[in-house]
Design a protein around this nucleic acid. Structure first.
Lengths: 170, 170
DNA sequence: GATTTTATGTCAGTCTTGTTGACATTCCAA
DNA sequence: TTGGAATGTCAACAAGACTGACATAAAATC
């Protein structure tokens, strides 16, 4: 706990990228970029009467069709009451289908309906467009660094979820 | 609008980093990393009975002491009524001081009190610690790429705010 | 077979933080 | 000086997160 990062400390190689000023810029970059990152989906969701919570559910059901409620809970990191409100709306509106598990009838396996898949497409198209434009502008080396830093920022448990994400099929 | 990025398209140089799969990984990396990014401050804020909105206000008042409410509004991108609730709590609790403008008495200039500065320090220490650890693990080249991509992700107006951020002194 | 655990869903209530609408104060310009 | 624009405050409401309590069904265990 000697190096608090309060100032530039030289160990032979330059550590100027670890100054408080550089860290602060990184922090503010995250703040502003995340707002931009969510702005396009937010606009679309608003037209459909949904929020970010619905987007997250639809995204991960698309990624892992047949996933269970419990699985989704772990990935999204919210309470079941919170997720349930969202899922109920999506199921009632015919965007998500909930099938009772064959092996374990307590489980509900979640799938996007064609309508749900259409919304997912619309949302991810918008989000990918911004990401593609940013990637293209920054170039492949920058993109590699971007991914490296973001991954290093995650907690080990989250990094695990990020890396793998199969499962779900009953 | 020919290239929708739906598949890898070669123009002589490799564009494999722009495939939908790579973009999707970038999107999910943002989602998970942002959650990690906010988790440390969230824990601290909870102990003090505040939320993220208070953090944002305290952060930018620290960055630009003497900033006006209107200025803060533009940076944070919320309505003045929303910000006002947060500021009222911070002022009542003695973390922020609001001084009537000398030139323009309609304006309120905002400053952190010693108590407010202490909370800001606690929050930014935690956030910097995670950022520093991620930066250190990824290395300077990765950090440069990280910043490049995030900046390219912002809207021009936001990028302006991110780059400059002085002002405030009455 | 009885009991416990697991998976899910629901109801009620609270909190944060976003929104809009209405309003007071102050400044400035016609 | 008067009316509009800018700035900020108060009140009320909505979305979406949370906790806690409880119900049901099925699986697992004793």
């Amino acid at each position: 706990m000697a190096d608090t990062g309060t100032g530039p400390i030289q160990h032979g190689e330059s550590l100027l990228f670890l100054t408080d000023e550089q860290l602060r810029k990184g922090i503010e970059a995250m703040f502003f970029a995340y707002r931009a990152f969510t702005s396009d989906p937010d606009r679309i969701l608003e037209q459909h009467g949904y929020g970010r919570a619905h987007h997250r559910a639809v995204h991960f059901i698309h990624r892992a069709p047949g996933t269970t409620v419990n699985n989704l809970l772990a990935i999204l990191g919210v309470t079941k009451q919170s997720l349930n409100r969202v899922l109920r709306a999506l199921i009632e509106d015919g965007l998500v289908e909930s099938r009772v598990g064959k092996r374990d009838k307590r489980e509900r396996h979640l799938y996007l309906t064609p309508v749900g898949a259409a919304l997912e497409q619309e949302l991810s198209d918008a989000q990918r467009a911004r990401m593609r434009s940013a990637f293209r502008a920054a170039g492949p080396e920058a993109v590699a660094g971007f991914r490296q830093v973001l991954e290093a920022m995650m907690d080990p448990e989250m990094r695990r979820q990020y890396a793998s994400m199969r499962d779900g099929g009953q």
